[in-house]
């Protein structure tokens, strides 16, 4: 049996797409190729008898892959793959590669092939990313800074700032706001009635943002009072509450702060 080639890439859509491009170009036989995002799974050991190839992101190659997916498979497949690439699932690069292998063979019908394990994984990751994005539409909390800017901090599992921002840009068109992923150090910035954009934050900026936490304002006090009084004592059920709002989401939610 041939040794498996493990193609390693960085954690970004561009990185994964580049790895897809290079892996394909190797013509090594798809079943002997495995893709892996570096640094995602710390428990991962190097496998014996495997050959490791490290791929540097290359925007040209990534662009080509993106174009082929859209024209040879479908726009839907492209969206599925991009969303999967934003997930925190360690299998994502490999799932994307093998999903695309099938896609380039079958065309747009690949998305209906739900009994295929790689197609299933892609859908599973999409569900998770989609659900998490939806949760944060509700769970994100803004704090109003002195200058009127709304600051929303969060620590999602998946990399969803970019997916989440259009919702708020539409809703709060006339507000200045920023949404920050405190774990990844990325943020989206929206200025009143302008297009929003993504930015990476420096360490000092992150530290400054972290300091804004526990401020009590008139409205956060009122909100907490409201939150407390709408619970019905006779129906108290903390298990259900925990199921609905996971503890990991509560850190930045006003009503769960002491």
């Amino acid at each position: 049996m041939k040794p498996v080639k493990i193609v390693q890439c960085v954690d970004s859509v561009e990185g994964i797409f580049t790895a897809v491009y290079d892996a394909w170009a190797m013509k090594y036989g798809h079943e002997f190729i495995k893709l892996e995002v570096i640094g995602m799974d710390e428990s991962l050991n190097y496998e014996l008898f495997s050959e490791y190839v490290l791929v540097e992101p290359d925007s040209l190659k990534a662009e080509k892959v993106a174009k082929s997916i859209r024209s040879k498979i479908s726009e839907q497949a492209y969206e599925l793959v991009v969303k999967a690439a934003l997930s925190s699932d360690v299998r994502k690069a490999d799932a994307i590669y093998h999903f695309l292998v099938r896609g380039f063979l079958m065309g747009k019908k690949v998305v209906d092939n739900l009994s295929d394990p790689y197609v299933q994984q892609i859908f599973e990751m999409n569900r998770f990313v989609g659900n998490e994005t939806h949760f944060f539409k509700g769970f994100l909390r803004f704090v109003e800074l002195k200058n009127g800017i709304l600051l929303g901090k969060m620590e999602p599992k998946s990399n969803i700032v970019e997916l989440l921002t259009p919702h708020f840009a539409d809703r709060f068109a006339a507000e200045n706001f920023m949404i920050v992923d405190m774990k990844r150090g990325v943020a989206s910035i929206h200025q009143r009635n302008q297009e929003w954009f993504m930015t990476a934050l420096e360490e000092e900026q992150m530290e400054a943002l972290a300091a804004y936490d526990t401020e009590e304002t008139e409205y956060s006090v009122l909100w907490k009072a409201f939150f407390k009084s709408v619970a019905i004592k006779e129906r108290e059920n903390y298990n259900l509450q925990r199921n609905q709002v996971r503890l990991r989401y509560r850190k930045h939610m006003t009503e769960f702060q002491e």
Binding site: G138, F227, A231, I232, R235, E236, L240
Partner: peptide
């Protein structure tokens, strides 16, 4: 969109 859940899980 659900924004939060109370102590009774609603």
């Amino acid at each position: 969109i659900c924004h939060t859940f109370t102590a009774d899980g609603r």
